Amino acid sequence: MNHYELAAWLRLLLTPGIGRGTARKLLTAFGLPATVLEQSPAVLAELLSPAQVHALSTEPHDLTSQLDVTWAWLNADPHMRRVLCLGDPLFPQRLLDIEDPPLLLYAVGRPEAWDDNLLNTGTCLAVVGSRNPTPQGAANARQFASALAGAGLTIVSGMALGVDGAAHEGALEGAASDGLATIAVVGTGLDRVYPRQHRDLAHRIAQRGVILSEFALGTGPLAPNFPQRNRIISGLSQGTLVVEAALKSGSLITARLAVEQGRDVFAIPGSIHATQSRGCHALIKEGAKLVESAQDVLDELVLEMTQPANIPIGHQTVREQGSESALLQALGFDACSLDALQARTGLPTPSLLAELMTLELEGMVARLPGGLYQRLVQA
Results as ranks from 00 to 15, higher is better:
Pro133Cys: 06
Asp97Cys: 07
Pro133Val: 08
Ile98Cys: 04
Leu125Ala: 06
Val127Thr: 09
Arg82Gln: 15
Pro102Thr: 01
Leu118Thr: 07
Pro89Val: 08
Val128His: 09
Leu105Thr: 07
Met80Leu: 04
Gly109Met: 02
Glu112Pro: 03
Gly137Gln: 13
Leu90Cys: 14
Phe91Tyr: 15
Asn132Val: 14
Gly87Asn: 02
Pro135Met: 06
Val83Pro: 05
Gly109Asn: 05
Asn117Ile: 08
Pro133His: 13
Leu95Glu: 08
Tyr106Asn: 04
Leu95Lys: 08
Asn117Thr: 10
Val108Asp: 00
Leu125Pro: 13
Ser130Glu: 08
Leu96Asp: 01
Phe91Gln: 08
Val83Met: 05
Met80Val: 01
Arg131Ser: 06
Pro135Leu: 02
Leu86Arg: 13
Glu99Ile: 12
Gln93Ala: 12
Arg110Val: 13
Arg142Lys: 14
Gly109His: 02
Glu99Met: 11
Pro102Ala: 08
Asn140Ile: 11
Asn132Lys: 15
Ser130Leu: 10
Arg94Trp: 07
Thr123Asn: 12
Phe91Lys: 03
Arg81Ile: 01
Ala126Pro: 07
Met80Trp: 04
Pro111Trp: 06
Leu96Ala: 02
Ile98Thr: 07
Phe91His: 10
Pro135Lys: 05
Cys124Tyr: 14
Cys85Phe: 11
Asp100Ser: 13
Tyr106Cys: 02
Arg110Glu: 14
Leu84Trp: 04
Asp88Trp: 07
Leu96Met: 12
Met80Thr: 13
Asn140Leu: 15
Pro92Asp: 09
Leu96Tyr: 03
Leu118Met: 08
Leu95Ala: 04
Thr134Asp: 09
Asn140Tyr: 14
Glu99Arg: 15
Arg142Gly: 04
Leu86His: 01
Arg131Gln: 11
Pro111Ser: 10
Asn132His: 12
Leu118Val: 00
Pro111Asp: 11
Glu112Asn: 09
Leu104Arg: 14
Leu84Ile: 02
Pro89Met: 00
Glu99His: 14
Gly137Pro: 05
Pro135Asp: 00
Gln93Gly: 09
Gly87Cys: 02
Met80Gln: 12
Thr123Ala: 12
Thr134Val: 13
Gln136Tyr: 15
Phe91Thr: 02
Thr134Arg: 13
Phe91Ile: 02
Leu105Arg: 05
Val108Cys: 04
Met80Ile: 01
Tyr106Pro: 08
Leu118Pro: 07
Leu103Gln: 13
Asp97Met: 11
Val128Leu: 11
Thr123Gly: 06
Met80Phe: 01
Val128Cys: 06
Asn140Asp: 15
Leu84Arg: 02
Ala113Asp: 05
Val127Arg: 11
Leu96Val: 00
Gly109Lys: 03
Thr123Gln: 14
Gly137Arg: 06
Gln93Val: 05
Gln136Asn: 11
Asp116Leu: 15
Asp115Val: 13
Pro101Trp: 10
Cys124His: 15
Gly122Lys: 11
Thr134Gly: 05
Arg82Pro: 03
Leu103Ile: 04
Ala138Thr: 03
Asp97Gly: 04
Gly137Asp: 09
Ala107Lys: 14
Met80Asp: 00
Gln136Glu: 12
Met80Pro: 03
Asn120Pro: 04
Arg94Pro: 09
Arg82Phe: 00
Pro135Asn: 08
Val108Glu: 12
Asp88Ala: 07
Gly137Thr: 07
Gln93Cys: 03
Leu118Cys: 04
Pro92Met: 03
Arg110Ser: 06
Cys85Pro: 03
Ala139Asp: 09
Asn132Leu: 14
